[in-house]
Amino acid sequence: MEAFEYRPNPAHIIFGSGSVAKTGHQLKQHGLSKPLILSTPEQVSQAEALSATLTEDVKVVGIFSEATMHTPLHITEKALQYAQEREPDCLISIGGGSTIGLGKAVSVRNGLFHIVIPTTYAGSEVTPVVGETVDGKKTTRSDPKILPSLVIYDIDLTMTLPVGMSVTSGINAIAHAAEALYAQSGNPITNLFAQEGIRALARSLPELLHDKSSVSARSDAQYGAWLCGTCLGSVGMSLHHKLCHTLGGSFNLPHSETHTIVLPHALAYNAPKVPGAMKMLADALPESNGDAIVGLNKLLAKTNAPRSLKAFGMKESDIDKAADIAVGNAYWNPRAIERDLIREVIRRAWAGEDARIDL
């Protein structure tokens, strides 16, 4: 076995149906009583419902409900000003990646204790990374201080998540684990997490199409998302995540849908250089017949996942610009980054083609 380093994710995890009811008790245990709750405009009702469940000795100082995708700096600055005026002693982010990203961007700046209650399968809640957008350009920042202090997984809050959003959020989670399998800083522990997380999501997402209220499928999906997110928080990412940050931040494309569409193409590009990782991925995907790309294409088809960036407003004329941005900053990837080939990867994702290993 090759030498490796493994640094466990230090976040406190509470998992299970009804777990959100433990929020008030957790606040007390940490000596906190003045939370500021963050959400998107669409999820303000969940933020209000959470506020109503907290005990009388906890005073919610406000609900900031302007979180939006890609964590634009001007929204973070607005939230920081809101917090400064209300003087909370902690933050509670309830929602998906947009809200969690805002919570992380705020907490790393003002040092507040950060509790996250995820309602999607984004996985951001267990990573020390935040992606922020300034003037249409998205950059990532990594710091142990970004990692939320407490994560409360309650499947009850995911039961009404639309099936389409469940699928793209779940494939987004699979992307975290798939890239972890060939990460430069990968190790046997994250490989185990990655395979188990992918299996759980590949098992649960098709089931949700038949029964979106399946408790077992929702529980499996949330469990898988936690494991996959932990992989993202433990090792570095490569081409797939770099492409998605470029496309999302520069062309305002939706986060989980972009990850879903790009994933098979990015993996197909790297596949020739990482046969061991592709075998582990194939073993975790049903109906792969030993071919990870085949297995992923089948999973996307079975779950009616979106396949085309064009359908979300990306123009064909944006492909060259995206390729230029994607190769503009050097980063580690198992296969050398070649601009013309990366352009073709982006073009295939734009057109909605099946992924294939022929570049």
Rank of each mutant, 00 (worst) to 15 (best):
H245D: 07
H245E: 01
T246C: 15
T246Q: 13
T246K: 05
T246V: 15
T246Y: 04
L247Y: 10
G249T: 02
G249S: 05
G249A: 01
F251V: 06
F251N: 01
F251H: 09
F251R: 13
F251I: 04
N252K: 13
N252T: 14
N252R: 13
N252I: 10
N252A: 15
L253N: 02
L253K: 11
L253A: 05
P254W: 04
P254K: 09
H255I: 07
E257L: 08
H259D: 01
T260E: 00
T260I: 03
I261S: 03
I261N: 07
I261P: 14
V262P: 03
V262N: 03
V262Y: 01
L263S: 08
L263G: 03
L263T: 04
P264C: 09
H265T: 07
H265D: 02
H265S: 01
H265Y: 04
A266C: 03
L267F: 05
A268K: 08
Y269F: 12
Y269D: 03
Y269L: 06
N270F: 01
N270G: 07
N270H: 08
A271C: 08
A271N: 11
K273F: 06
V274K: 00
P275M: 09
G276M: 11
A277F: 10
A277T: 08
M278A: 00
M278L: 06
M278K: 03
K279G: 09
M280Q: 15
M280V: 04
M280C: 13
L281K: 03
L281S: 09
L281P: 03
L281H: 04
A282S: 15
A282Q: 10
A282L: 08
A282E: 08
D283P: 10
D283N: 14
A284H: 04
A284Y: 00
L285Y: 01
L285P: 04
L285C: 01
L285H: 09
L285W: 02
P286F: 04
E287W: 05
S288H: 06
N289I: 06
G290M: 12
G290N: 02
A292C: 08
A292R: 06
V294Q: 14
V294L: 15
V294C: 11
G295E: 02
L296C: 12
N297I: 01
N297S: 09
K298H: 05
K298E: 05
K298P: 00
L299H: 04
L300F: 09
L300E: 00
A301W: 07
K302E: 11
T303Q: 02
N304E: 10
N304T: 10
N304D: 14
A305L: 05
A305T: 03
P306R: 14
R307G: 00
R307T: 13
R307A: 12
R307I: 10
R307Y: 06
L309T: 00
K310D: 02
K310A: 12
K310L: 12
K310G: 05
K310N: 11
K310P: 05
K310M: 12
A311R: 14
A311I: 08
F312M: 15
F312H: 14
G313M: 11
G313S: 11
M314F: 05
M314S: 10
K315E: 15
K315I: 06
K315H: 12
E316F: 11
E316R: 13
E316S: 15
E316D: 13
S317E: 15
S317N: 13
D318V: 11
D318K: 07
I319H: 01
